[in-house]
Amino acid sequence: MDQETQTEAVRTAVEAIADRLADEKDHLTDLDSAIGDADHGANMDRGFRTALERVEETDGDPADLVKAAGVALVSEVGGASGPLYGGSLMKASQELEDGITADTTVAFAERYLETVEERGKASVGDKTMVDALTPAVHTYRKSIEVDDREPIDALGKAVDAARRGVEFTTPIRAKKGRASYLGWRSVGHQDPGATSTLYLLEELLDVATE
């Protein structure tokens, strides 16, 4: 892929994500109602609508566009998900400075996960977006580096892995985020941030497959 194609792919991906989040807005808010404060759908929808405007205005390489999307999220979303989604995109975008390849996407994914863990002081099993990200990133890297799969195949596996991560959040007790305040009452509810993370990955796969 040349740079122009890659840049266009980033725009298409952000658009797909923005559309998907608009569709899932109410569902995400319902999930957040049960164990949070009923705004995750609105937060993500508002954030990615702005991110889309920004990447449409931004010229540059793919890294610049991803960074612009991250900045948009940080300055538009607030809450916990703003700095987590936005800050991580900003940081991880640095890994794409040499373009989008199998290797740089692995580095991007790992950097993204690390940043979420750092900012959120969260680890896997805390019932957060980390639970969707961890299996996805691990699977992606293993598929590419060990199994020698094509990035698109690896992404497919990563999406399946993320889905299991999301399902895993339901039966466990939250240790981070607002849901942690509920103690044992958080058990039995699916984490909204993990769910929106899955949607992002699903849309990436969709765009990559087309």
Partner: peptide, 12 residues
């Protein structure tokens, strides 16, 4: 002031 029940953004 952030959105309802949402922290204000860092730049603000």
């Amino acid at each position: 002031a952030g959105e309802v029940f949402t922290s204000p953004t860092a730049d603000q």
